[in-house]
Amino acid sequence: MDQIQWQGLDGVARIFSISTAYESIRPTAGTVPWFDAIWFPNCVPRHIMSRFSKSPFFECRYSTDVWNHALEYTQITSSHEWSMVASDTVGFRANKSAASLVAKLLFGATIYFIWQERNSRLFNSKKRAAKELFGVIYSTVRLKLLSVQFKESCQIDQLRIACKLK
């Protein structure tokens, strides 16, 4: 029986498969400092791609209004400058507390839904008020938090009350 061979960049011939071809040609690098702020247990994958794409839309009045609603539920400082908000979120990367999880989920969901709102306004001429959009963000994060298994503590009880998880 014939077999197709794949010679990777390392010069070693292997039996061909898509995964071996991909692994041999994909660029590799060390882990970046913000990796854990993006990929963490309980993250929402569709919120990841827009998370660190700097956008002037994030700095407009509408986005500021949406972000102000989100700040009420996080330990992120009240900065509206992109680099400061991203830096605060990266600061939570190794923190496994419930408050850290809420901050990372809210940050990702806020960026994702602001970008979605931008596209809706540009391509569909549909607009939502900032408070209405935050309602969507809050519901998304709340539903995600309902699926998380937390260790019981006073902090978790406070989180459940604040986010209406009970």
Rank of each mutant, 00 (worst) to 15 (best):
C43Y: 09
V66E: 00
A70N: 04
V66P: 01
K54H: 14
H80L: 03
N68E: 10
Q75R: 14
R93S: 15
T89N: 12
P45I: 02
R93F: 07
S83F: 03
R93E: 09
V90T: 11
P45C: 09
T74L: 05
R93C: 15
V85P: 00
E81L: 02
Y73R: 10
N68R: 08
F40M: 05
Y73C: 05
R61F: 15
A37H: 05
S55F: 00
H47T: 00
N68L: 09
H47D: 02
P56L: 06
W67C: 00
D88Y: 06
T74G: 04
S83R: 12
F52K: 04
R46H: 05
H69F: 12
C43N: 12
S63P: 13
F58H: 05
F40R: 08
S79R: 00
M84C: 13
T77D: 06
W34P: 06
F58Y: 10
P56Y: 06
T64H: 08
T64Q: 14
G91R: 09
K54A: 12
N42V: 06
K54M: 08
S63I: 04
C60L: 11
S87N: 12
Q75Y: 03
S79V: 01
H69G: 08
I38K: 07
A37G: 09
F58R: 01
C43M: 13
A86Q: 01
T77W: 00
